[in-house]
Write a protein that binds this DNA or RNA. Structure first.
Lengths: 277, 277
DNA sequence: AAACGCAGTTTCTAAATCGGGAACGCTGAC
DNA sequence: GTCAGCGTTCCCGATTTAGAAACTGCGTTT
């Protein structure tokens, strides 16, 4: 299927960094002939996968692509349960919650539930980031089989995303060891300047990391002494998700009585220095 | 581009109703030969657009399709602003907020922000529904040019989704007139049994309906006498969105001073009979 | 236990579709 | 008014696809 393959190669050029593209630009990016690109784009347009701006003649992702892609998260084993759980996390902490999964050698954001302190993190659902540059990625690495981690890290250069991104393999491996010990990972502006994150693993049937449940917040709102408290909340919910995913025993967090039923919004354990105005 | 076109036709068979499909089933659905379907599916799998379950050998939508599709909403003109606005709506009402757009002759859910009363509505982002069977669709119809409405309604049979779905054209047109008058539409279980919705239009540059901002809630939680109050809240925010989309004057709702800045979480105007447990 | 049936993958050949370069409108800039 | 840049169309050679049937592997039946 060479023709289909080429079409998809063209389609995949519509990245988060370049969401709107023209024929000539795509031709230079892919090395294909302009005329061919034009025909490919037209086919995608006919199917609603791409949309063409009538004024600029440039193309961007269309609604049918969105409809199709949404089926991935709508039918993802974790998603249905995670949606509910994440709302509870937001209610309890006030911060935005996030569910990330591993995709290839990157991290992808699957779900996000906006909190009250931070409505827009800039990073959106469906975006990819390198494993070493995010809390989610580090947590995944921490619980991956050591051989797999070596495969992923050896030879790979740890790209800089912000000044705080971990770029030294030794530092990263120390961080991974600490994550394994504590059961949660943190980031102080390693992915986005000014934003902090806490993340805990969700395990699947075979005890492998399936996803990472995390919180995102402006750094100035959270005292890092509270990180274990936030992690404890996440651990409770990650236990629920892990059990739902077929991993009966969750190794982290106390076995404190979990809130039963569908989130009776109890006294929120908000950890901001300055809570609601 | 016949090959690409066939590939996309196969891809589009992965609907919300049939998110997991096998080769034979796709062959019978599309009328193509099994062997060809197999090769097409393989190509999609190589690109991550589809994923194959190793046990059942069946295919479902993959992560790259999700990543691609998410770019539609991430770069949709309304989405960035709507994300923030919808969080505010949820804070103020406690109910789930939704942003829907028109796509072809259907309604598509673009964004959803979960409330505390109803974490999962069953209908998910990226799903399509007929215009007449949803609040969003009715609001869109109400503010579409009359000629366009005639095109859409004449000859079309109004499909039944629930026992409450409006299936009589005359009844529908009366509802549309009322929506135009009041500035908001409602549904009492017309889309999903037991769920009610309120929706208001968002207008774009040329004054056309761009989207519908709505609330979803379990019917027993809301007194319909409160509907205008909910609509008033939605109107405020829809005004913000319309202005952001280039429509300076929003015709509905009082010009009450809007809450400034990014949602100072004020006293919530919850309208449930039995508020938080 | 052996055989059947079903589902997915592979093989093969004729012929249609694609690939590549260059020419053609169209729009906006100078 | 002319030029430059972009997207689209045209054309021919040959690669690639379409289609039917055979193959393999697994689960179920007898």
């Amino acid at each position: 299927m060479k023709s289909l393959s080429k079409g998809l190669r063209v389609l995949m050029e519509f990245t988060a960094d370049a969401p709107v593209l023209g024929v000539t630009e795509l031709a230079s990016r892919t090395g294909l002939a302009k005329g061919q690109i034009s025909k490919i784009l037209n086919t995608f347009r006919q199917h609603g996968v791409l949309a063409q701006d009538q004024a600029t003649r440039r193309y961007s992702v269309g609604s049918r692509a969105f409809a199709l892609g949404s089926r991935f998260v709508n039918y993802h084993p974790l998603a249905r349960e995670a949606l509910v759980v994440m709302r509870q996390v937001v209610e309890q902490t006030g911060h935005s919650a996030r569910l990330s999964i591993m995709d290839g050698d990157q991290v992808m954001y699957l779900l996000q539930s906006e909190g009250i302190f931070l409505a827009d993190t800039g990073w959106r659902v469906g975006m990819f980031l390198p494993l070493h540059a995010t809390t989610a990625g580090k947590v995944i690495l921490a619980f991956l089989p050591p051989l797999r981690v070596d495969e992923l890290l050896d030879g790979a250069t740890l790209v800089t995303i912000t000044p705080n991104t971990i770029t030294d393999p030794a530092t990263l491996r120390r961080d991974l060891a600490e994550i394994r010990r504590k059961g949660f990972g943190i980031s102080k502006g390693e992915t986005t300047a000014g934003l902090g994150t806490v993340g805990v693993p969700v395990f699947g049937r075979d005890g492998h990391v399936t996803a990472v449940l995390g919180l995102v917040f402006p750094l100035h709102l959270v005292d890092w002494a509270d990180a274990p408290a936030l992690a404890a909340i996440l651990h409770e919910h990650a236990r629920t998700l892990s059990q739902g995913a077929g991993c009966p025993v969750y190794p982290f967090g106390g076995s404190a009585p979990r809130p039963t039923g569908t989130s009776p919004p109890q006294a929120p354990v908000r950890s901001g220095r300055r809570a609601r105005a």
